[in-house]
Computed example of a mutant assay.
Amino acid sequence: MTPVELSRTVLHAVRRAVDAGELSVAVPTRAVVAPPGPGGCGDYATGIALQLARPAGQPPFRVAEVLRPYLVGTDGITDVVLTGPGFLNISLDRAASDVGLVAEILRRGDRYGHADQPDGRVVQLHCPHDLRAVVVAEASARLLRSQGALVRVSAEGFEDAWTSVLGVTVDAVGHAPAELPVNVRPVPAHGSADPMSLGRDAGRWALLHPAAGDRPRIGDEHLVQREGNPLFRVRYAHARARAAARNAAGLGFTAAPGPVAERDLLAALADHPRVLAAAADHRAPDRLARHLVTVADAALPFLPTVLPRGGEKPSAAHRARLALAEAVGAVLAGGLALLGIDAPEHL
């Protein structure tokens, strides 16, 4: 069971409880599932009971008690434990969950973690006449659209060179009505720094990777082709994943999801939909940038193990590792695309 499927399962449990008359609430459109926090247990936790407590007119722990029987015994779920004020901590059948996760990523490709359809939200992003603000607003718009929102980006001012060098665009330029204040205002780059001198990919990364409240560092370190450069690690991991698929084809075997023991890497891939949703909700593309670094750092030690060595013949284990490598490539390519950064096949 993937995190997306688990979220749907939680919503289905709420719907069943409502249909049975045990809860009187409107079924929400989304249930957030994430790795358990301090004091939690299992593979994932959800605070859906805390979200529903007030409209249900019941304490959160009681709502969690109502929902627990509808989750226990569901295919792929091995246990549900209540902790804290009402968190549902869910343990999964890990082997089946891992195989399902990789299969889901391969099915969705670089759209893994995207919404299936529009969610009805209409969002207006408005930023000052500042390059970093415009880049952050545009990347935030990409993230919001990936989650089903309709988004329009406007800026107080805009320079044509920003499009020709960094590929950034907006929908409108000029002062907005009083009822639309500036709502995207990250700390600008230092006045003497020129992000455009880095080119499109490194320039965008330099502006997007730091949190909005941090002043970005604009320097040649973003261009260095070494592992000390986070952008290089992300793009290198993507290129290695693509190379594994090409080389496997040359050896005559293809990917097939199966059991693998890469816990940290699987956890990072499973967390991708949650990161996309949080980055969109908070207008924080830096969360996605840092998540891609996490995925790359977990993938780089694994990728050299994908292909057979020496006289080895391709086995089911190799096909499972290849499937995981292809999943890594899809997640990194999709994430970089949302940041407006190229994901090269060769590096």
Score class of each variant (00 low, 15 high):
A241Y: 09
Q124R: 15
G84Y: 08
E345Y: 12
H222Q: 01
G191R: 07
A56Y: 11
S315C: 05
L101W: 06
L144H: 11
R62H: 14
F302P: 00
V32T: 13
G120Y: 03
T305W: 05
V33P: 04
H129A: 15
L180I: 07
E227Y: 14
A325P: 04
L231D: 06
A133N: 09
S315G: 13
D116Y: 03
A26S: 12
L82E: 14
F87A: 08
N89E: 05
A211L: 04
L125I: 00
D93Q: 10
E312P: 04
A137K: 00
L338S: 10
T163H: 12
V234S: 02
A316M: 09
G86H: 11
R274G: 08
R319Q: 15
A193R: 05
G84D: 11
P55I: 01
D194Y: 03
A289T: 04
P35E: 12
A155V: 02
L143M: 09
P128R: 14
L338C: 10
G86F: 11
G47M: 03
A161H: 12
L251F: 11
V27K: 03
S140D: 01
V63A: 11
L266M: 07
A277I: 00
V187H: 05
A241T: 11
E22G: 02
V33N: 07
P188M: 03
P344R: 08
E312T: 04
E227G: 07
G167A: 09
A337D: 15
L125E: 01
L82V: 14
R108L: 12
G57D: 08
V25I: 07
S24R: 15
D342N: 15
Q51D: 14
D110L: 13
N183D: 07
A255M: 05
A206T: 04
A327H: 02
E179R: 14
A95D: 10
L339V: 12
R215V: 15
V18A: 05
A176T: 11
